[in-house]
Write a protein that binds this DNA or RNA. Structure first.
Lengths: 407, 407
DNA sequence: CGGAATTTGTCTAAACGCGGAACATATACT
DNA sequence: AGTATATGTTCCGCGTTTAGACAAATTCCG
């Protein structure tokens, strides 16, 4: 039951019905491909004639294409199968991180086309824009088989206003109110979409999942690395909030008198479960930035820690288990406030999932209000799936499939 | 940008455009009444003919009525003003609380018609249903001028599945999986809608606010009394979650090692800011249920405490200020995760708002990530406005104005 | 091998609603 | 009294869904 905003609404025009049904058809083809016009009509409960007209419109825009004839199940004419046309259309995904920036070329459906390439991130926005433009052009030239690039999606670790194309604040990059989209778009001649990395990851999961329970309910993506990034999906839409800062569960406290967090407050979830927090726990002292580290500490990663924990290092195991417990306790806040159908977790710590799952689960149950809250589905997203890059790609691909704004 | 759920969608039919525009017209009349057909057409950017047809449909269903002719601004024919028809249609709101149950009769727009009546809440669901049915019938009989009662809305302190009409769990009433709706509806012969009280309050604020910044963004209602009830509105819709438990910010922790909460966990926000927590702080010992209290303690309320604080009792002031600080710290979690355009706060503690506002504000700023997050609008809802009862009423009135499900 | 049955995809006519313009009505200004 | 202007109604054109008929393609069966 949604309220119509009397200050910002969309009246239904003559073509609105068509627009709605066109998008439904497109999404059904996407979800069920290969599919015939007749099956599409059955799924939509419309006559075959309507489905045929919708399909011909989609064909003329080459959003879909007609493939080979399918096998008839019983007797009767064989159906012509329809597919989403992801041939020759490509998308570039960019993942800007504090240290390195990653680039990936995919087709419209997010299928990886090349290898992930990366280079060092320049904190100077002009230099970075030039670097990006040059490398993206090169990448597109290398893949001459793809003719048109639909756009570039950029995931940024920080606050982003996608409508304005500006990075409002990215602490790790020391950016404040920077226009990243327009210069890059101008340099490339291709549309550019930017978004906060947590929200982008949530978007990618939303558009790639086939689970209908996730599609109808809420879901949350939690990315745990240097910081904790989160994205929340409510009613099939990424939650933005008034200032594009919704979903920052990383800074919900576990203990307001707890350790100092990078955000300036104390005891944020991030201050307990970030990679640095886990390592600090292992080394027994605060490793936060600015403080001098010993050589061993500087190159030692969470993966190394997990390896030691698996090898039987009791101190390493204790540090990991401690993080696991705090992880579960923080997830409980997400469950109690959002009640998602599924939580996605990404980040280095997830490579230890088989070790930590029971601890996370029991900590989660400890603080959730209901039994089914404690049983909330948790889905690990391995680094190999490149969730941030896929999220960046989804920024470009998703709008073509989105529901039209109505009422 | 919303994703279409390929397993649950609504195809646009021949009448869908009309349905959409009808609801838009109805909402515009509601928001701008009195309004003429010509102005309505201008607001909707459609021709007057279309607006006229929509209006005549609404008139035939007597959702609106034609009032007196307005004054012409310049020259030309005088417009006929249209109004929402809230005459002769009434709604009953019911607020079930642990100790007492309150009933209110309003018109369709939520205007109070009678006085708020109340009686002791029976924990026996059958007895309570009978009590409610009898008193509601009596109340309707007393107001013979209203002919038709559109429905009864019931706000319940606990988990509710509105679709099934069941109370899944209400700890303070010791109810578990109870069907409250159907027996009451059967006894009254009127449709009954039930909902969690926090969500109902959020709904009421959504439907009564005229602020367009609230209408377009998220908003949160926080009700602080024995417990902390919350309701979250995202994109003009109350956030439900997978199991109807979304929005329970009362059990997000301030300190996981903090005081025991009624939910079984430690250090929930509720355990810091509920009335009992505030009083416990004043008396210097835990007053949670089950423990014996002294006579003075048992009858002493938060209002009394606030009165003493205002009168200069330093100990009372310290207790109130302490609650204020925790209140602000907890609100920060809401701001960081939901980024609402406005937060509504109800409950006894708000009678001290002039005292505590600076403390709440500074605590909020302490933990919010951005300056504008710390400046989030806070709106006090006084008890005289009966937010829970208005929420119950909104359950009945809102569906008639809601956007049609499309795509 | 040929006709019946069945399925797919296209086409046509009807129903319905928006888009645009003309028309009647009502009021104020000159 | 006549003109200008605004409101509300009516009529027709056009796009879209709805319903049904029809051609094409394929299998089944006599």
């Amino acid at each position: 039951m949604r309220k119509i905003n009397p200050h910002d609404f969309k009246v239904a025009r003559r073509g609105t019905s068509r627009e709605i049904n066109r998008q439904i058809a497109l999404n059904l083809i996407r979800a069920h491909q290969p599919i015939s016009r007749a099956d599409l009509a059955r799924l939509m409960s419309v006559r075959r004639g309507v489905a045929s007209l919708l399909v011909s419109e989609l064909l003329s825009e080459s959003l879909i294409f007609e493939g080979a004839l399918g096998e008839a199940v019983g007797r009767g004419r064989r159906p012509t199968f329809l597919y989403i046309d992801s041939r020759q259309r490509c998308v570039v995904g960019v993942d800007i991180r504090a240290s390195r920036t990653y680039i990936l070329l995919t087709d419209l459906m997010g299928k990886q086309l090349g290898v992930v390439s990366s280079f060092q991130t320049s904190r100077d926005i002009d230099v970075l824009t030039k670097d990006l433009a040059r490398r993206i052009k090169q990448m597109l030239a290398d893949f001459s088989e793809v003719s048109a690039c639909e756009g570039v999606g950029v995931a940024v670790p920080g606050m982003v206003d996608p409508a304005l194309g500006r990075v409002l604040h990215a602490p790790t990059l020391a950016w404040r109110d920077v226009n990243l989209r327009d210069p890059l778009a101008a340099a490339l001649g291709i549309p550019v979409h930017i978004e906060n990395s947590g929200k982008a990851c949530a978007l990618a999961q939303l558009w790639t999942t086939r689970s209908d329970v996730v599609a109808s309910g809420n879901s949350v993506f939690v990315s745990i690395s240097d910081g904790v990034g989160t994205g929340v999906v409510v009613n099939g839409e990424v939650m933005r909030g008034r200032h594009n800062t919704a979903g920052e569960f990383g800074h919900v406290p576990l203990n307001i008198d707890g350790p100092r967090c990078s955000c300036g407050a104390n005891g944020c979830w991030e201050a307990y479960v970030s990679n640095l927090a886990t390592l600090s726990r292992y080394f027994g002292r605060d490793l936060s930035e600015g403080r001098p580290r010993e050589a061993e500490e500087a190159s030692f990663t969470v993966e190394d820690l997990i390896a030691r924990a698996r090898a039987g290092d009791a101190k390493a195991l204790a540090a990991v288990n401690s993080t696991a417990r705090y992880l579960g306790l923080g997830l409980a806040s997400i469950v109690n406030s959002v009640d998602p159908a599924r939580i996605y977790i990404g980040g280095e710590i997830t490579t230890a999932w088989s070790l930590i799952e029971p601890i996370v689960r029991s900590a989660l149950r400890e603080r959730t209000l209901t039994d089914f809250g404690g049983a909330t589905e948790i889905h690990i997203v391995p680094a190999e799936e490149h969730p941030r890059l896929r999220g960046a790609v989804a920024l470009v691909a998703a709008p073509a499939f989105a529901a039209p704004m109505v009422a």
